[in-house]
Write a protein that binds this DNA or RNA. Structure first.
Length: 268
DNA sequence: GTGTCATGCGTAT
DNA sequence: TACGCCTGACACG
C-alpha cells in the first residue's frame, strides 16, 4: 500500500540490482504477456520514480510504466528466488536478482511521449525537491476551493502524498482537513511543502512512515517507537490524541477516510 | 473457509 | 457521487 516514498525507495533498490543489466521478463499470470515478450532480453538504461509512478527506460527507448494503485506490491529477491504468486503480473530477473510485481493498477510499455505526458500532468514531487516545488504547490492550491484534505490527495497539486501522509501532515501543522485550500495561510502552505519534503524523504530512507516525535511518548528515538505508535491520527478514530488526549475523530472525504484531532486542528 | 478492508485512480453518471 | 479494477492480510467462525 504505497505512497510516493515506497516508489522512490523501490526505484533506488531496483536501480542497484538492474540498472545497466540485460534482464529477462515474463508474466506468470499472463496479463502482461505481450509487454513481457517485448522487454525480454533488453538492457535497462534507467529506473526512476515520479510521484507514485515507477518508470524503467530501456536502451531501445521503450519505457515500462508501473503504478501500484491500492493493492500493488513489489517483492525484490536474491536468486535463487521463491516461486512467484500465481497473480504475479511481471517477473523480471537476472542471474542474481529477481523482481515480482503483483496487483498493479498499471503495468504497461509506453513510448517517450506518453511518459512526458504523464510527467506533465503531475504536480511537484517533494522527494525530487524541484527548486520551484513550493511555488508550484502554492499556485495549484490557490486555485482550489476544495478542502485542503482533498487537495493533498490530488496528484496534480502535489505528487506522491497518500492517505497516511495527508492525515499526518495536517495534524503536524494543526490544520483542520476541511479548511478550504484557498484559505490555508501562506506560511502554512510553505510549511506543508517543507514538511512533505522532510517526511517523505525520511519515509523513503526508513522504508516506513513514522511521523511521531518520540518525545511525545517519552522516548528519545523514532526507532524506539513500537507498532501502533508511529502515527498521530491515521486510523486512530475514538482514541486519545498523542499530544493532548482529546478524542481523535474521523470523516469521509470522497470515499477516503480522514482522521484529525479537534483540539490540535481546530475549525476556523 | 469467508468476509472485510486497504497507504489509488480512472471512468461513467 | 458511484462503481470497477487489482491482491493479500487479517479478523472471525
Amino acid at each position: 500500500m504505497p505512497e510516493g516514498h515506497v516508489l522512490h525507495r523501490q526505484a533506488r533498490l531496483q536501480r542497484r540490482r538492474f540498472a545497466g543489466e540485460v534482464v529477462r521478463t515474463a508474466s506468470p499470470q499472463g496479463r502482461f504477456d505481450e509487454g513481457a515478450a517485448r522487454l525480454d532480453g533488453q538492457t535497462v538504461a534507467e529506473i526512476r520514480a515520479i510521484g507514485k509512478h515507477l518508470i524503467y527506460r530501456f536502451d531501445s527507448d521503450d519505457h515500462l510504466h508501473i503504478h501500484l494503485g491500492l493493492f500493488g506490491k513489489f517483492r525484490l529477491r536474491r536468486q535463487p528466488a521463491p516461486e512467484p504468486s500465481p497473480n504475479c503480473r511481471l517477473l523480471l530477473w537476472t542471474d542474481t536478482d529477481e523482481l515480482h510485481l503483483a496487483g498493479p493498477t498499471a503495468c504497461e510499455v509506453l513510448d517517450p511521449g506518453a511518459i512526458d505526458a504523464l510527467e506533465a500532468r503531475l504536480g511537484p514531487d517533494p522527494i525530487a525537491r524541484p527548486a520551484d516545488g513550493a511555488e508550484r504547490f502554492a499556485a495549484r492550491l490557490a486555485t482550489r476551493s476544495i478542502p485542503i484534505g482533498k487537495a493533498l490527495l490530488d496528484q496534480k497539486v502535489i505528487a506522491g502524498l497518500g492517505n497516511v501522509y495527508r492525515a499526518e501532515l495536517l495534524f503536524l501543522l494543526g490544520i483542520h482537513p476541511f479548511v478550504p485550500s484557498k484559505e490555508v495561510l501562506a506560511h502554512e502552505v510553505d510549511a506543508l511543502w517543507d514538511l512533505s519534503v522532510i517526511e517523505l524523504v525520511e519515509g523513503e530512507r526508513a522504508g516506513k512512515i513514522v511521523t511521531v516525535d518520540p518525545a511525545d511518548l517519552g522516548r528519545t528515538r523514532r526507532s524506539e517507537l513500537g507498532r501502533g505508535e508511529k502515527l498521530y491520527v491515521y486510523k486512530r478514530h475514538n482514541r486519545p490524541c498523542r499530544r493532548c488526549g482529546t478524542t481523535v475523530v474521523a470523516a469521509d472525504i470522497d470515499g477516503r477516510n480522514i482522521w484529525w484531532c479537534p483540539s490540535c486542528q481546530p475549525e476556523r
